[in-house]
C-alpha cells in the first residue's frame, strides 16, 4: 500500500549551504520531507513526497529553500482553464 503520488515532478530545491539549522522547515512540512537529523542542518529526505504547499520556503528566514507553491487540485485547474479568467474567481 502506498500513498505516494507521481515521482520526479516537484520543483523543490534545497541549498544546504544557506541552512542555519533553525528547524522551521521540519516543523512545518506535513510530509517530513525535511527533518533535523543532526541538529546542525536540515536534511531533505524523500523529495517525491513534497506537495509544493510552500510552507518550508515561506518559513525559511535564510532563503535556503525554493519551491513553486500551488494547489494540486485538478478541479481548480480545469475550472480556471475553462473560464479563461486571469484572476482566481470562485463562486
Amino acid at each position: 500500500m502506498s500513498l505516494r503520488y507521481l515521482e520526479n515532478v516537484v520543483t523543490l530545491e534545497y541549498d544546504r549551504d544557506k541552512c542555519t539549522g533553525c528547524g522551521k522547515c521540519a516543523e512545518v512540512c506535513p510530509h517530513a520531507v525535511f527533518v533535523m537529523a543532526d541538529e546542525r542542518k536540515a536534511k531533505m529526505t524523500d523529495r517525491d513526497l513534497c506537495i509544493e504547499c510552500g510552507a518550508c520556503m515561506r518559513n525559511c528566514p535564510f532563503d535556503a529553500i525554493k519551491v513553486r507553491p500551488g494547489v494540486g487540485c485538478a478541479y481548480a485547474l480545469m475550472m480556471s482553464a475553462l473560464r479563461h479568467r486571469p484572476a482566481p474567481v470562485c463562486e
Binding site: Y5, R68, G70, V71, C73, A74, Y75
Partner: peptide, 11 residues
C-alpha cells in the same frame, strides 16, 4: 486530487 493531501501542482 484536490481533496487529498498528497498531490502537488506540478504532479
Amino acid at each position: 486530487t484536490g481533496s487529498s493531501p498528497i498531490t502537488s501542482l506540478s504532479g
